[in-house]
């Protein structure tokens, strides 16, 4: 099977049952994406597929051979952090860091959804969406943080959203 991950072509022959998450971690050595629950409940495994955030644990690798996949390793490097990575560092948006790659990939996808004008459950109207902290919390509710770093995560995301606006 052939995959494109972070712009690099990979070949692997995993078992047909392999999830996208296990492909990344166990077959390709991309261990940035984390496994929390393996059932779509925690968001630690969030990656971007063709720019959209998904839970890589609930998807089969074999179904992603034509896709562009971006993981936390593809967003930035220690020398050249992605703005969200830098904001998480600045605002201490973590304690243990286990949920952080998923939080950051999810936030990248989420800010793109906001840019496209997608409403959320807490949006007052389904017309023009106003962006605020309540929107950040609702839109990030698929990413759990066992350390409850939530206030700092919201600060980090708000910073980047405001800088973009």
């Amino acid at each position: 099977m052939h995959f494109t991950i972070n712009g690099t072509a990979y070949t692997a022959e995993p078992d047909i049952r392999t999830s996208l998450l296990d492909l990344l971690r166990e077959h390709l050595g991309l261990t940035g994406s984390k496994k929390g629950c393996d059932h779509g409940q925690c968001g630690a495994c969030t990656v971007l597929v063709n720019g959209r955030r998904i839970n890589s644990c609930l998807s089969l690798a074999v179904m992603h051979q034509d896709d562009e996949i971006t993981t936390i390793e593809g967003l930035g490097t220690p020398e050249d952090l992605h703005p969200l990575q830098a904001a998480f560092v600045k605002h201490d948006g973590y304690q243990c860091g286990y949920c952080t790659p998923g939080q950051i990939c999810s936030a990248v996808g989420m800010l793109d959804e906001v840019k496209k004008g997608w409403p959320s459950h807490v949006s007052e109207t389904l017309g023009d969406v106003e962006f605020n902290d309540g929107e950040i919390s609702e839109r990030m509710s698929g990413n759990l943080c066992r350390c409850a770093a939530y206030p700092n995560i919201v600060d980090a995301i708000r910073d980047v959203a405001e800088a973009k606006a």
């Binding site: 779509g40 968001g43 969030t46 959209r52 955030r53 998904i54 839970n55 609930l58 998807s59 999810s106 996808g109 989420m110 959804e113 409403p119 959320s120 459950h121 949006s123 389904l126 017309g127 839109r139 990030m140 509710s141 698929g142 990413n143």
Partner: peptide, 23 residues
């Protein structure tokens, strides 16, 4: 859907998470 079937948008947005709804 947002303009004419608001109930449907609202029901979808009340379900699951952003990541799950994308799939």
């Amino acid at each position: 859907v947002r303009e004419k079937y608001e109930v449907l948008s609202r029901a979808l947005l009340a379900g699951a998470s952003g990541q799950l709804r994308n799939k």
